[in-house]
Design a protein around this nucleic acid. Structure first.
Lengths: 211, 211
DNA sequence: GTCTATATGCCGATAGAC
DNA sequence: GTCTATCGGCATATAGAC
């Protein structure tokens, strides 16, 4: 059972460090030192630094996205059964709320939230594209729902508004424990629940903005 | 006049490379090679890589922010003279529109837009904080205007909504020529003007969302 | 002011003992 | 599976010739 511990320790350490310093800014030496394992073990267990970061992303992102998709499909199904138009807020909630529950569920998730916030901004092509491909099914389903929820809105407009939503969300996750640009009074940290209560009306209203 | 050319060439090359590969992902070797100058000249003219990136940011950000502030002050002044409440859209426009005009004005600005989009997401503390300090006066003035434009809205709410606006904007700038996550059809590049026409209603509606 | 040459150190990755 | 030792390369920064 030593193998599993080693792999797990590496993933945990890498998750935290990538979240803070980014992919390029984190070295395998720092990761293995923090994990208390040997430098060579990363290459043994994962093959390369790149495959490691992909695994760090996948470990939490796949279940999270499954939860998002499940919630979204339920929303879209309810709409069909009740014969009423889909609520935009319900769709946006199905994207944002699982993030909150996900955080409460696992202990190391806080830094992972920063990490997924950072992943989209990562300059490295391979990492960003891998991340994008993991997120693609969620966005596709959301866009589909939004097209139904907002008839008369061109799909291109909804696509860009979804794009803005992703930007607002990922920026928030990235800065979740370090909000910059507060000269007076320091806004400090907000509980994730309150933060969703802030974010949800903003993106919903933005999505429903008149053409 | 050789000095000025060398400095200028370094700044131009660095701007473009930082925009694409980020701060950590760009080496002084790559910069000096692209600029056609000697490796040592960066340290001679700027002192260090860090001071170089700060100068790259400052060169364009200071005039851009002056333009933003000027526009914003005009909006706030008009409101005083005309005795009418400030329009939220006008405030948001004063932030977003100068970016567009700035792009049309200077040739290398396209990559700079990606760069300022990336600067906020940069893991490096020093770079990000320097950038934040350059942006602070703009955000302070915007928040001031928004408090007046939206009486009854708690300042904390407006602060966070401004934060979301920054996220949406910077994410868009970062991806301005490389929009990800488009499975079908490829949304392709949008002209900056059209992009502002998309972004402005979104953030305005988000800012005015009911409590 | 601009160059070459180099100091010094960390990087990711691997070979080979155990 | 895990270790030590090390390879080859590139990083930033500087010293000193011109």
């Amino acid at each position: 059972m030593k193998q599993k511990d080693t792999k797990q320790n590496i993933l945990d350490a890498a998750e935290e460090l990538f979240a803070v310093d980014g992919y390029h800014g984190t070295s395998l030496r720092t990761i293995t030192k923090k994990a208390g394992v040997n430098l060579a073990s990363v290459n043994y267990h994962f093959g390369s630094k790149e495959e490691l970061v992909v695994e760090v992303l996948r470990r939490r992102l796949v279940p999270l996205n499954e939860s998002r998709i499940k919630k979204l499909q339920k929303v879209l199904l309810d709409e069909k059964l009740l014969q009423q138009p889909v609520g935009v807020e319900a769709i946006m909630r199905s994207f944002i709320e699982p993030t909150l529950k996900f955080r409460d569920a696992s202990p190391g998730a806080m830094s992972f939230l920063s990490l997924i916030g950072r992943a989209l901004a990562e300059p490295d092509d391979t990492v960003r594209k891998k991340f994008a491909s993991m997120m693609e099914p969620v966005f596709h389903l959301m866009l589909e729902g939004l097209v139904k929820a907002l008839p008369g809105y061109p799909k291109e407009v909804l696509f860009w508004r979804l794009h803005f939503t992703i930007g607002a969300t990922s920026h928030t996750l990235r800065c979740i424990d370090n909000v910059p640009m507060d000269k007076e009074g320091k806004m400090g940290t907000l509980s994730t629940e309150k933060l969703v209560a802030m974010l949800l009306p903003f993106v919903t209203a933005g999505m429903e903005a008149p053409l």
